[in-house]
């Protein structure tokens, strides 16, 4: 899977005809649909793989399941951010109940990440052809992200693609995403599960995905960066 090597058939349905990404123009201000070239490209890259396996790291939505199932893909879902928050709550509870001075009272973020990954993202190597991370990394503890990225890289199939969004400024509200069609997803305001943790600079993003073979970034009208990485 390679966007340089892969032949692009002519026609509007291919990824070769980008439109300006970002919020879709609409007369209805409440319409929260986002045109996404990265999603289009992501799907195009997977289109040749029969029964491509996708891991969605956001919450599960009927629309997203139906979309992938209709395309013959196989979907796994794991709401990483929620799981991470629940994990932190459990850890806090555990620490609260630990006697003062007892071993393990203080643990490093790295160890915390290891502990988290012992029960999460537990898939065999090269399990997925595509990973949808949405804006997950913006909300994760920066110290933990490298370990999470390492795991995601391992579970991606060689040639697999990962889609991630990065806000250029702290997101004004917490939101979730679900797929509408092969070029659009819906942005859904949601109760705040986590606060925006970090605004990644382009260099930081490239460093974070240094293991990946290549990347493409689309900047939307709202300055949200949609990034696609190929293993």
């Amino acid at each position: 899977m390679n966007w340089i090597a892969k032949a692009r058939p002519s026609g509007a349905a291919t990824a070769a005809a980008p439109v300006k990404p970002g919020p879709a123009p609409s007369s209805d201000p409440s319409a929260n649909i986002r045109i996404s070239n990265s999603l289009k490209e992501f799907l195009w890259l997977l289109s040749d793989i029969p029964h491509a396996r996708i891991l969605d790291l956001g919450p599960i939505w009927q629309a997203t399941v139906t979309f992938f199932v209709d395309k013959g893909f196989r979907l796994a879902s794991e709401d990483m951010l929620r799981t991470w928050k629940e994990f932190l709550t459990d850890e806090e509870e555990r620490l609260r109940n630990t006697p003062v001075g007892a071993e393990g009272e203080k643990i490093s973020r790295s160890l915390l990440a290891d502990r988290f990954l012992q029960s999460n993202l537990q898939y065999p190597e090269a399990s997925f052809h595509g990973v949808l991370a949405w804006d997950l990394l913006d909300y994760f503890d920066v110290a933990v992200i490298p370990r999470v990225m390492e795991r995601i890289f391992n579970i991606l199939h060689p040639g697999g693609a990962m889609l991630a969004l990065f806000h250029s400024r702290p997101a004004p509200r917490f939101q979730r995403y679900r797929i509408v069609d092969s070029q659009r997803f819906e942005v859904l305001p949601a109760p705040t599960l986590a606060v925006h943790s970090h605004v990644f600079q382009n260099r930081e993003i490239l460093d974070l995905f240094a293991q990946f073979r290549s990347s493409k970034t689309f900047v939307g009208r709202d300055q949200v960066r949609e990034a696609l990485f190929l293993k």
Partner: peptide, 21 residues
């Protein structure tokens, strides 16, 4: 019937949003 529903309008709380199935 497994059909993709039209996207619901955004709400403040997901629980109050229309079911997507």
């Amino acid at each position: 019937n497994g059909a993709v529903p039209p996207p619901s309008k955004p709400q403040e709380m997901p629980k109050s949003s229309a079911p997507s199935s």
